[in-house]
């Protein structure tokens, strides 16, 4: 059971997470929706921290807040979609949404209520090794990721490399007439090559 400070923080994070999740779908301005989504992610990360999964918490912030949510923000700002019009009819579907939600909740209750753990489960499930008290999540993951799972890790890296090459091959275009930086040429500029001094006679142009 939760108690004391831990309970207080749990309810704080959980309440803000649920409230901001509600705001994500009810905010009028899509940019506000994305900002509320980021707030939801932060609170979910806080919940992870409370359970001792600090690695997941940080990954959630780095990946979802740092990359995915910012991408959403870009998309929302760059695409000219009239979200207000899209949402105009949303409220009339609320009863159906509530019904679906109720059915899902009922099913979940039935499933979890009738669920019995297998007797051998306690021994079969691997205990968190090493103990959280002696080694942090991140270090423990690193211990096996770069040893036992080095093969999978490297293949996953190759897949990401292919994705990167593919994106560049299919989309990068070298446009003519674009001024590009050439560091060596720019640094090697001298007053002699960069300037041309002319004497201008009085009353005449160049």
């Amino acid at each position: 059971m939760l108690n004391g400070l831990e309970a207080a923080f749990f309810y704080l994070f959980a309440f803000i997470a649920v409230a901001s999740a509600f705001m994500v779908i009810s905010a009028r301005n899509p940019v506000h929706s994305v900002l509320y989504l980021i707030l939801t992610f932060f609170n979910a990360a806080g919940l992870f921290l409370l359970t001792g999964a600090e690695f997941l918490a940080m990954i959630l912030l780095v990946v979802y807040v740092g990359a995915v949510a910012v991408l959403f923000l870009f998309v929302v700002m760059m695409l000219d979609v009239d979200f207000a019009e899209l949402k105009s009819g949303a409220l009339q579907y609320a009863p159906i949404g509530a019904l679906v939600g109720l059915i899902l909740a009922a099913e979940l209750i039935v499933v979890t209520g009738g669920y019995a753990f297998a007797p051998q489960l306690a021994t079969a499930v691997a205990k968190p090794t090493p103990d959280i008290a002696t080694r942090t999540n991140t270090a423990a993951l690193g211990d096996i990721l770069y040893t036992d799972y080095i093969f999978y890790f490297q293949v996953a890296g190759l897949i990401l490399l292919v994705a990167m090459i593919g994106a560049i091959v299919l989309t990068l275009r070298h446009k003519e007439g674009v001024k590009r930086q050439s560091i060596s040429a720019q640094v090697a500029r001298t007053p002699e090559t960069g300037m041309e001094i002319k004497k201008v006679e009085t009353g005449k142009g160049i």
């Binding site: 293949v155 190759l158 897949i159 292919v162 994705a163 090459i165 593919g166 091959v169 299919l170």
Partner: peptide
């Protein structure tokens, strides 16, 4: 293996 192969083939 399948994903590494397929992703390159899509491209």
């Amino acid at each position: 293996g399948l994903e590494l192969q397929s992703l390159a083939l899509y491209v």
